[in-house]
Design a protein around this nucleic acid. Structure first.
Length: 841
RNA sequence: GGGCGCAUAGCUCAGUUGGUUAGAGCGCCUCCCUUACAAGGAGGAGGUCGGCGGUUCGAGCCCGUCUGCGCCCACCA
């Protein structure tokens, strides 16, 4: 190989040059290997309808450093990428982008084209199939942009393993896993009160809840005992008075003990309701006695269930109060003021009515309360009764809960304390996992229901397809034994209209990527996986749901280790987000500093640790990359290849010995997923290597004092460079590949990680420290004298402890050369290392 | 209310099982255009390791306690 060292090496253009080469050469392809020789990674599929921010770059870079390390260690790295393109976020983006909305009652229009000027305020209605086509169209555009960015960042993903959560393969896996859950009784349908987003008109799961502050008013309102005297309750939701089922106080609350077992009547409507005792009523909240409605909050659901209260629903699925006057209201006239209104308007109306009737005590007092929102929604959730699919997750089964907690104990967590978030979450589950969504762009439930003679569905006897027939779309396909003409007819069938939530598919990502029931060889080679990397906010969702699915299907964990990243936060320690307007655009940062520099900064954020975004730090990474170029140019410019065995000079061997220790430390750190430590030790050594060792041997390496010393220095420099390039390769893939290409065959990323056996020379690493300290003092003399570093020194006296003196005398010639010392050095023993000298101006 | 984490230089962070005068980078000050590198290099200043108490020959590190900050969860009458 002919060395080809450029005259003016530069960082510009390296991303384009090498990412194209890696793509052309399929550098990061996974080649089927036995399980023990494979390292498999369950990469989080980013939501393609969103945008990638700097936090993503950091987290995915963390994974990539480990992937590159394991690849260099000789393992076949199975590193797929996925796009989460199914589900609500995509629907919302498509609605906005094309100015459409899905109306499932419309027929498919093959010639449909979206409006030229999308107006999302006045959307065009399209059929379900047209809508899904638009989703697929837009996601494929978004996905290309994501892939381009990841390639630019230098992720060593095997792009031939790319998957998306809406793809037929994913749909097949999701439906197959669901059918298996169904057959084992782990999936079931239930009609129950459900958290409901009134804007999106769909049920949502516990894991997708978010607390938000919401302004409201306390209203003190009179209910009436049989004798007409008042019982006051306090509520922030007076519009729910028509749905009140009971007043409830704590069993030990002396204020209300006499009322238990009696009834009171509701204001305005005169509904007779019982006063009951329940331990979940809290005496110090509000008036200490609560009105239980169906349903105002989750406590109401508990009371309704445990006290067998009637269901009096007034909130509809669109969030408005029902237009029909409820039949349980003795005095229904006031309801006309509420019918069809939003809760907000109904509240104003009922407050006026209560004020007029004298049942409002005092004025409403403002308050700020915490309310449940769907994390992607913008109106408070309501609770409505609806028929939904669930998967068991331990929320209602103590034995399963315990088993899943044990899975959390079994998993290796990096960092260790992230385990608590998992345990905490599982212990706090209050119900099974609701997986059905009343939406369109998602994996349909592979289920039909027979219709009886009256055309009513028999939900207890669903019709299911053979696994061989998957994926199915029950809205388009007829079940076996029926034909399409029987759809919706008495004696025929109907499709389950719902789709699975995104998490119900992404919870199967190990099954999807590893080829479960699709590619047995691949599955055997890759599952259970090694590494589960992602940031800490999805422990309760993605991580937990995959543990559930794997536990139910395979009775094992889906991976061995969870490597959890922190967030990138701004200077006020706030999480970056688009809504707060503080998001950093990755393209700008990558363009400004280069991918290697940004990756360097990412790698400096330890696992699990939030890290502030600071542009000045990016410059440090860039300087390191530049330094690698320049130092390499120097080393390789000295002369042709030298055998490692040519290292004869003690200081050359000492430098290599110190590097040996660095290699051991970096390897150990990487094995523990502590990529930051691996980088730190390599980087610290590299600066010492440049500032001290390289400067020290420069003159000798030029062969100014004979060929033998030069050859020793050149051999040591070349070996040190080769090893250091490989130590940096996981972090700075572009610049290390560039330098590698000057003098080595093949990609550095397929080179083997350095091993201790590569070191041919035995040296004393501590010598490098001693020499460094002496150099620092020699420079200090000139710095204090405020003269150039090439100014000659004479009458140099070096004092040091005996053993240090011995080491320094071995490099006397190099020291004299680098410090431009004229005459001999005088050595003297002393407790401390010190230098005195005369500066010859 | 429950859980977890953090508190070390102006800033961002290291500090491995307790062991001499506590480290790095950035920033700051001073100097140097030295032929790998001025998008550089050299030298330097800067810290009562959040407070209090304890264990120990010895504590940044272990124990207790208090304070402040962050995150997760719960409650949200």
């Amino acid at each position: 190989m002919i060395w080809n060292v450029p005259e003016n090496p530069a960082l510009e253009g390296l991303e384009a040059k090498w990412s194209a080469r890696w793509k052309a050469d399929d550098t990061y392809a996974y080649h089927l290997a036995p399980r023990a020789d494979t390292f498999s990674i369950d990469t989080p599929p980013p939501t393609v309808s969103g945008s990638l921010h700097v936090g993503h770059i950091f987290s995915y870079t963390h994974t990539d450093t480990v992937a590159r390390f394991q690849r260099m260690r000789g393992l076949q790295v199975f590193y797929p990428m996925g796009w989460d393109d199914n589900g609500l976020p995509t629907e919302r983006r498509v609605q906005k982008f094309y100015g459409v909305r899905c109306d499932p009652t419309l027929p498919y229009d093959p010639s449909f084209t979206p409006p030229d000027k999308p107006d999302d305020k006045h959307p065009v209605s399209v059929s379900r199939r047209n809508f899904i086509e638009l989703c697929l169209k837009l996601t494929s555009i978004d996905e290309q942009a994501f892939e381009d960015l990841w390639r630019r960042v230098g992720l060593s993903v095997d792009w031939s393993q790319l998957y998306s959560t809406i793809s037929p393969v994913s749909q097949t896996v999701a439906q197959r896993a669901f059918l298996r859950n169904l057959a084992r009784g782990e999936a079931y349908m239930s009609e129950a009160p459900t958290l409901w987003d009134v804007t999106l008109e769909t049920a949502v799961a516990q894991a997708e809840l978010q607390d938000r502050e919401y302004p409201g008013f306390y209203h003190r309102i009179a209910f009436h005992k049989a004798d007409g005297s008042p019982v006051y309750i306090e509520t922030t939701r007076p519009e729910l008075i028509p749905s009140v089922c009971a007043l409830i106080a704590h069993p030990d609350d002396d204020r209300y003990k006499d009322l238990f077992g009696t009834t009171v009547t509701s204001p305005l409507f005169g509904t007779e309701i019982p006063v009951l005792a329940h331990r979940k009523a809290e005496p110090d909240k509000g008036a200490g006695i609560a009105m239980c409605c169906t349903f105002g909050d989750l406590t109401d659901v508990t009371w309704w269930r445990e006290l067998n209260l009637p269901t009096r629903t007034i909130i509809q699925r669109d969030g408005r109060l029902t237009r029909e006057t409820p039949d349980w209201l003795p005095n229904s006239a006031p309801y006309a003021e509420l019918a069809g209104k939003t809760p907000f308007s109904a509240r104003e109306a009922i407050v006026a009515l209560l004020r007029a009737s004298g049942d409002l005590d005092g004025e409403p007092t403002p308050t700020t309360r915490m309310v449940n929102f769907f994390e992607k929604g913008d109106k408070p959730l309501e609770i409505v009764a609806s028929r939904q699919w669930y998967i068991t997750n331990g929320g209602r089964d103590e034995a399963l809960r315990q088993r899943l907690i044990e899975r959390g104990e079994e998993l290796q967590w990096v960092p260790e304390h992230m385990r608590h978030r998992y345990i905490n979450w599982v212990e706090g589950l209050n119900g099974d996992w609701l997986i059905s969504r009343q939406r369109f762009f998602g994996v349909p439930f592979p289920v039909w229901y027979p219709l009886d003679a009256d055309g009513q569905p028999d939900y207890d006897h669903p019709i299911i397809p053979d696994e061989d027939a998957l994926p199915v779309d029950p809205m388009a396909d007829a079940p076996t034994g029926f034909d399409e003409s029987q759809r919706g007819r008495p004696g025929g069938f109907m499709a389950d209209p719902d789709v699975m939530d995104t998490w119900a598919t992404s919870s199967l990502s190990p099954q999807i990527v590893c080829g479960w029931e699709r590619d047995p060889e691949l599955f055997a080679a890759t599952f259970p996986m090694d590494m589960d990397p992602h940031a800490h906010e999805i422990i309760r969702t993605w991580l937990f749901s995959r543990v559930v699915r794997s536990h139910l299907e395979f009775d094992c964990l889906p991976w061995h280790t969870a490597a959890i990243s922190g967030f990138v936060v701004d200077n006020d320690r706030k999480k970056f987000s688009k809504s707060q307007g503080n998001a950093i655009i990755p393209d700008e940062v990558l363009h400004k500093f280069g991918s290697d520099a940004v990756r360097w900064r990412a790698a400096m954020a330890r696992p699990g640790t939030d890290s502030p975004f600071d542009e000045t730090q990016m410059k440090v990474g860039r300087r390191l990359a530049m330094k690698l170029l320049n130092a390499s140019k120097f080393v390789l410019g000295l002369g042709g290849p030298q055998a490692p065995s040519a290292v004869t000079d003690p200081i050359d061997a000492a430098m290599l010995d110190a590097l040996k220790g660095v290699l051991a430390a970096a390897t150990q750190a990487f094995d523990a997923y502590e990529y930051t430590t691996a980088l730190e030790v390599a980087e610290a050594f590299f600066w010492t290597f440049c500032d001290d060792y390289l400067e020290l041997v420069k003159e000798r390496a030029y062969a100014t004092r004979g060929i033998d010393g030069a050859v020793s220095a050149q051999a040591a420099l070349q070996q040190a460079l080769s090893i250091q390039l490989r130590l940096f390769a996981p972090f700075l893939p572009f610049v290390t590949e560039e330098v590698w290409s000057w003098w080595q065959d093949g990609s550095i990323h397929l080179a083997t990680w350095p091993s201790l056996s590569e070191f041919k020379a035995d040296g004393d690493g501590s010598m490098l420290d001693t020499v460094g300290a002496a150099l620092e003092r020699l420079r200090g003399v000139k710095s204090e004298a405020k003269v150039s570093m090439k100014t000659p020194l004479s009458a140099v006296v070096i004092t040091a402890p005996d053993d240090n003196l011995a080491q320094l005398k071995l490099v006397e010639a190099d020291l004299k050369a680098v410090a431009n010392i004229t005459g001999d050095i005088t050595w003297a023993e002393a407790a401390d290392l010190a230098v005195t000298a005369h500066v010859d101006l």
